[in-house]
């Protein structure tokens, strides 16, 4: 389902990403912004009414702790996002859409994650 939404909303499009970063369209901002608003409201509803999972467990959301990787890694990710025109979800969807060459991008992203794991201790966080 999620893949279908990604493709149908064109957020998987390289062109849409360029358009966003040149502030020439509201489309991407609308998609991400409204997704966040719906997310905020639904989490507040879950908390307020203490909604349980279908297995009757209490819903827990782990806190994210700030570290400088949020900044450095964020900047690096942003550069990659603009170049490839895709973050990890859309990369997967593009492969499904028949752009098989993007599987190379995906493998490269896996390699990037692996290298991060390898040199993690040496990086500033």
């Amino acid at each position: 389902m999620f893949g279908i939404i990604l493709v149908k909303s064109q957020v998987v499009s390289w062109f849409r990403i360029q358009e966003m970063f040149h502030l020439q369209s509201f489309h991407m901002y609308g998609v991400i912004g409204s997704a966040i608003i719906v997310g905020i409201v639904s989490i507040q509803v879950i908390k307020r009414f203490q909604i349980k999972t279908i297995n009757r467990e209490a819903i827990t959301i782990p806190d994210k702790k700030f570290h400088w990787g949020n900044v450095y890694g964020g900047l690096i990710f942003g550069v990659g996002w603009a170049i490839t025109g895709a973050c990890p979800g859309p990369l997967l969807a593009q492969v499904g859409s028949g752009f098989l060459v993007i599987s190379i991008t995906l493998l490269s992203a896996i390699a990037g994650t692996w290298v991060y794991g390898l040199i993690r201790e040496k990086l500033p966080h």
């Binding site: 991400i32 997704a35 966040i36 997310g39 905020i40 639904s42 989490i43 994210k64 570290h67 990787g69 949020n70 900044v71 450095y72 890694g73 964020g74 900047l75 690096i76 990710f77 942003g78 550069v79 990659g80 996002w81 170049i83 490839t84 895709a86 973050c87 990890p88 979800g89 990369l91 060459v101 993007i102 190379i104 991008t105 995906l106 493998l107 490269s108 992203a109 896996i110 390699a111 990037g112 994650t113 692996w114 290298v115 991060y116 794991g117 990086l123």
Partner: peptide, 28 residues
């Protein structure tokens, strides 16, 4: 294709998440 992908994979893990994990889930 290759360098861009590498930056995505490296950066996202370093940052602790991507557009979905941070922008959507995190801010939500």
């Amino acid at each position: 294709i290759v360098v861009g992908g590498f930056l995505v994979g490296f950066g996202t893990r370093y940052a602790g998440g991507c557009t979905s994990g941070h922008a959507i889930m995190g801010i939500s």
